[in-house]
Write a protein that binds this DNA or RNA. Structure first.
Lengths: 102, 102
DNA sequence: TCAATATTTCAACGATTGTCAAAATATGGA
DNA sequence: TCCATATTTTGACAATCGTTGAAATATTGA
Protein backbone atom coordinates (compact mmCIF):
# COMPACT_ATOMS: atom_id res chain seq x y z
CA UNK A 1 0.00 0.00 0.00
CA UNK A 2 1.19 3.45 -0.86
CA UNK A 3 1.70 6.08 1.78
CA UNK A 4 -0.88 8.34 0.16
CA UNK A 5 -3.59 5.71 0.41
CA UNK A 6 -2.68 5.04 4.01
CA UNK A 7 -2.91 8.73 4.89
CA UNK A 8 -6.26 8.96 3.16
CA UNK A 9 -7.59 5.98 5.09
CA UNK A 10 -6.25 7.22 8.39
CA UNK A 11 -7.81 10.63 7.74
CA UNK A 12 -11.11 8.96 6.94
CA UNK A 13 -11.08 7.13 10.26
CA UNK A 14 -9.74 10.07 12.25
CA UNK A 15 -13.13 11.62 12.81
CA UNK A 16 -15.57 10.59 15.49
CA UNK A 17 -18.66 10.32 13.30
CA UNK A 18 -16.87 8.48 10.52
CA UNK A 19 -15.22 6.06 12.93
CA UNK A 20 -18.66 5.40 14.38
CA UNK A 21 -20.07 4.80 10.90
CA UNK A 22 -17.30 2.39 10.09
CA UNK A 23 -17.77 0.47 13.33
CA UNK A 24 -21.47 0.15 12.59
CA UNK A 25 -20.62 -1.27 9.19
CA UNK A 26 -18.06 -3.65 10.65
CA UNK A 27 -20.69 -4.90 13.04
CA UNK A 28 -23.24 -5.19 10.25
CA UNK A 29 -20.85 -7.35 8.24
CA UNK A 30 -21.16 -7.93 4.49
CA UNK A 31 -24.94 -7.38 4.65
CA UNK A 32 -24.25 -3.72 5.36
CA UNK A 33 -26.69 -1.02 6.34
CA UNK A 34 -28.78 1.60 4.57
CA UNK A 35 -27.59 5.22 4.66
CA UNK A 36 -30.76 6.43 6.33
CA UNK A 37 -30.53 3.76 9.00
CA UNK A 38 -26.99 4.91 9.80
CA UNK A 39 -28.07 8.55 9.94
CA UNK A 40 -30.78 7.68 12.43
CA UNK A 41 -28.56 5.50 14.62
CA UNK A 42 -25.81 8.12 14.68
CA UNK A 43 -28.18 11.05 15.02
CA UNK A 44 -26.92 13.26 12.26
CA UNK A 45 -28.51 15.00 9.30
CA UNK A 46 -28.75 12.98 6.07
CA UNK A 47 -26.55 15.49 4.25
CA UNK A 48 -23.92 15.23 6.95
CA UNK A 49 -23.88 11.46 6.84
CA UNK A 50 -23.74 11.49 3.06
CA UNK A 51 -20.64 13.66 3.27
CA UNK A 52 -18.96 11.22 5.63
CA UNK A 53 -19.97 8.18 3.61
CA UNK A 54 -18.38 9.77 0.57
CA UNK A 55 -15.21 10.39 2.53
CA UNK A 56 -15.03 6.76 3.66
CA UNK A 57 -15.90 5.63 0.17
CA UNK A 58 -13.13 7.72 -1.40
CA UNK A 59 -10.70 6.10 1.00
CA UNK A 60 -11.97 2.70 -0.16
CA UNK A 61 -12.92 1.74 3.37
CA UNK A 62 -16.57 1.20 2.48
CA UNK A 63 -18.63 0.49 -0.59
CA UNK A 64 -22.18 1.40 -1.44
CA UNK A 65 -24.64 -0.53 -3.58
CA UNK A 66 -28.06 0.55 -4.71
CA UNK A 67 -30.85 -1.63 -3.39
CA UNK A 68 -34.16 -0.36 -4.59
CA UNK A 69 -34.75 3.05 -3.09
CA UNK A 70 -31.98 2.49 -0.55
CA UNK A 71 -28.24 2.64 -0.78
CA UNK A 72 -26.63 -0.06 1.29
CA UNK A 73 -23.12 0.55 2.55
CA UNK A 74 -20.77 -2.18 3.69
CA UNK A 75 -17.27 -2.18 5.12
CA UNK A 76 -14.45 -3.13 2.78
CA UNK A 77 -12.60 -5.57 4.99
CA UNK A 78 -9.81 -6.15 2.51
CA UNK A 79 -8.94 -2.45 2.61
CA UNK A 80 -8.99 -2.35 6.38
CA UNK A 81 -6.70 -5.34 6.50
CA UNK A 82 -4.36 -3.65 4.06
CA UNK A 83 -4.26 -0.59 6.29
CA UNK A 84 -3.49 -2.68 9.35
CA UNK A 85 -0.76 -4.48 7.43
CA UNK A 86 0.71 -1.12 6.41
CA UNK A 87 0.71 0.11 9.97
CA UNK A 88 2.29 -2.97 11.47
CA UNK A 89 4.91 -2.99 8.75
CA UNK A 90 5.77 0.68 8.71
CA UNK A 91 5.07 1.85 12.22
CA UNK A 92 6.03 -1.11 14.33
CA UNK A 93 9.26 -2.44 12.94
CA UNK A 94 11.74 -1.71 15.70
CA UNK A 95 12.42 -4.39 18.27
CA UNK A 96 11.95 -2.42 21.44
CA UNK A 97 12.17 -3.45 25.05
CA UNK A 98 8.46 -2.68 25.24
CA UNK A 99 7.83 -5.48 22.81
CA UNK A 100 5.79 -5.16 19.67
CA UNK A 101 2.45 -6.90 19.36
CA UNK A 102 2.84 -7.24 15.62
CA UNK B 1 -8.48 2.45 24.73
CA UNK B 2 -11.14 5.11 24.51
CA UNK B 3 -12.54 6.18 21.18
CA UNK B 4 -11.37 9.74 21.73
CA UNK B 5 -7.76 8.68 22.15
CA UNK B 6 -7.98 6.50 19.08
CA UNK B 7 -9.34 9.38 16.99
CA UNK B 8 -6.58 11.63 18.28
CA UNK B 9 -3.93 9.09 17.36
CA UNK B 10 -5.42 8.43 13.95
CA UNK B 11 -5.58 12.17 13.29
CA UNK B 12 -1.95 12.50 14.34
CA UNK B 13 -0.89 9.85 11.84
CA UNK B 14 -3.25 11.04 9.09
CA UNK B 15 -0.85 13.66 7.76
CA UNK B 16 2.01 12.97 5.40
CA UNK B 17 4.68 14.86 7.28
CA UNK B 18 3.69 13.45 10.66
CA UNK B 19 3.48 9.91 9.35
CA UNK B 20 6.98 10.40 7.92
CA UNK B 21 8.20 11.70 11.28
CA UNK B 22 6.72 8.73 13.07
CA UNK B 23 8.26 6.28 10.63
CA UNK B 24 11.64 7.90 11.14
CA UNK B 25 11.25 7.47 14.87
CA UNK B 26 10.14 3.86 14.52
CA UNK B 27 13.23 3.20 12.47
CA UNK B 28 15.41 5.04 14.97
CA UNK B 29 14.07 2.87 17.79
CA UNK B 30 14.31 3.75 21.48
CA UNK B 31 17.45 5.84 20.85
CA UNK B 32 15.27 8.36 19.00
CA UNK B 33 16.30 11.35 16.97
CA UNK B 34 16.88 15.04 17.60
CA UNK B 35 14.22 17.49 16.42
CA UNK B 36 16.65 19.33 14.17
CA UNK B 37 17.83 16.12 12.57
CA UNK B 38 14.24 15.24 11.72
CA UNK B 39 13.58 18.70 10.29
CA UNK B 40 16.59 18.35 8.01
CA UNK B 41 15.76 14.83 6.86
CA UNK B 42 12.15 15.76 6.16
CA UNK B 43 12.99 19.13 4.68
CA UNK B 44 10.64 21.34 6.63
CA UNK B 45 11.08 24.48 8.70
CA UNK B 46 11.91 23.97 12.40
CA UNK B 47 8.72 25.71 13.44
CA UNK B 48 6.67 23.42 11.22
CA UNK B 49 8.32 20.33 12.57
CA UNK B 50 7.87 21.52 16.12
CA UNK B 51 4.15 21.88 15.45
CA UNK B 52 3.92 18.30 14.18
CA UNK B 53 6.02 16.90 17.01
CA UNK B 54 3.65 18.53 19.46
CA UNK B 55 0.70 16.98 17.68
CA UNK B 56 2.23 13.50 17.84
CA UNK B 57 3.24 14.12 21.42
CA UNK B 58 -0.29 15.15 22.42
CA UNK B 59 -1.53 11.93 20.90
CA UNK B 60 1.01 10.05 23.05
CA UNK B 61 2.58 8.49 19.96
CA UNK B 62 5.99 9.97 20.68
CA UNK B 63 7.89 11.31 23.65
CA UNK B 64 10.61 13.93 23.86
CA UNK B 65 13.48 14.14 26.31
CA UNK B 66 15.97 16.94 26.72
CA UNK B 67 19.54 15.94 25.98
CA UNK B 68 21.82 18.88 26.36
CA UNK B 69 20.94 21.45 23.79
CA UNK B 70 18.92 18.91 21.82
CA UNK B 71 15.50 17.43 22.31
CA UNK B 72 15.42 13.79 21.40
CA UNK B 73 12.11 12.32 20.30
CA UNK B 74 11.32 8.62 20.33
CA UNK B 75 8.32 6.59 19.28
CA UNK B 76 6.04 5.33 22.01
CA UNK B 77 5.64 1.74 20.91
CA UNK B 78 3.21 0.86 23.64
CA UNK B 79 0.78 3.52 22.39
CA UNK B 80 1.11 2.36 18.82
CA UNK B 81 0.40 -1.19 19.89
CA UNK B 82 -2.64 0.00 21.80
CA UNK B 83 -3.91 1.76 18.70
CA UNK B 84 -3.42 -1.35 16.57
CA UNK B 85 -5.22 -3.40 19.19
CA UNK B 86 -8.09 -0.93 19.15
CA UNK B 87 -8.35 -1.09 15.39
CA UNK B 88 -8.26 -4.86 15.16
CA UNK B 89 -10.83 -5.11 17.93
CA UNK B 90 -13.22 -2.42 16.78
CA UNK B 91 -12.84 -2.32 13.06
CA UNK B 92 -12.20 -5.91 12.14
CA UNK B 93 -14.61 -7.97 14.18
CA UNK B 94 -16.92 -9.39 11.54
CA UNK B 95 -16.12 -12.74 10.09
CA UNK B 96 -16.33 -11.98 6.41
CA UNK B 97 -15.76 -14.12 3.38
CA UNK B 98 -12.77 -11.91 2.64
CA UNK B 99 -11.22 -13.17 5.82
CA UNK B 100 -9.75 -10.96 8.51
CA UNK B 101 -6.02 -10.84 9.08
CA UNK B 102 -6.47 -10.06 12.75
C1' DT C 1 -47.16 10.13 -15.34
C1' DC C 2 -47.31 11.57 -10.70
C1' DA C 3 -46.58 11.43 -5.79
C1' DA C 4 -43.80 9.57 -2.02
C1' DT C 5 -39.51 8.14 -0.11
C1' DA C 6 -34.25 7.82 0.01
C1' DT C 7 -30.07 9.86 -0.93
C1' DT C 8 -26.85 13.17 -2.84
C1' DT C 9 -25.29 17.67 -4.34
C1' DC C 10 -24.99 22.59 -3.63
C1' DA C 11 -24.05 26.76 -1.17
C1' DA C 12 -22.79 28.96 2.81
C1' DC C 13 -20.74 29.30 7.21
C1' DG C 14 -17.70 28.98 11.17
C1' DA C 15 -13.93 26.09 12.96
C1' DT C 16 -9.76 23.78 12.46
C1' DT C 17 -5.37 22.76 10.11
C1' DG C 18 -0.72 23.35 8.07
C1' DT C 19 2.80 26.57 7.07
C1' DC C 20 6.50 29.66 8.23
C1' DA C 21 8.96 34.08 9.58
C1' DA C 22 10.05 36.30 13.64
C1' DA C 23 10.50 36.46 18.42
C1' DA C 24 11.08 34.01 22.69
C1' DT C 25 13.12 30.36 25.45
C1' DA C 26 16.61 26.85 26.85
C1' DT C 27 21.17 24.94 27.09
C1' DG C 28 26.22 24.64 26.95
C1' DG C 29 30.68 26.58 26.31
C1' DA C 30 33.98 30.48 26.16
C1' DT D 1 28.25 36.83 31.93
C1' DC D 2 27.72 36.70 27.05
C1' DC D 3 27.40 34.36 22.75
C1' DA D 4 26.14 30.56 19.73
C1' DT D 5 23.16 26.78 18.88
C1' DA D 6 18.62 24.15 19.32
C1' DT D 7 13.89 24.29 19.87
C1' DT D 8 9.36 26.20 20.84
C1' DT D 9 5.90 29.78 20.84
C1' DT D 10 3.45 33.44 18.62
C1' DG D 11 0.91 35.58 15.05
C1' DA D 12 -0.78 35.67 10.62
C1' DC D 13 -2.48 33.57 6.59
C1' DA D 14 -4.67 30.54 3.07
C1' DA D 15 -6.68 26.04 2.70
C1' DT D 16 -9.41 22.41 4.18
C1' DC D 17 -13.06 20.39 7.11
C1' DG D 18 -17.66 19.48 9.26
C1' DT D 19 -22.30 20.90 9.40
C1' DT D 20 -26.81 21.79 7.63
C1' DG D 21 -30.99 23.62 4.97
C1' DA D 22 -32.55 23.66 0.48
C1' DA D 23 -32.58 21.96 -4.01
C1' DA D 24 -31.68 18.20 -7.14
C1' DT D 25 -31.61 13.32 -8.31
C1' DA D 26 -33.04 8.39 -8.13
C1' DT D 27 -36.25 4.77 -7.37
C1' DT D 28 -40.65 2.59 -6.46
C1' DG D 29 -45.52 2.04 -6.51
C1' DA D 30 -50.11 3.83 -7.61
Amino acid sequence: METKSAVKMLAALAQETRLAVFRQLVEAGPAGRAAGELAEVLGCAPATLSFHLKELSNAALIEGRQDGRFVIYAANFASMNALLAFMTENCCRASSADGCAC
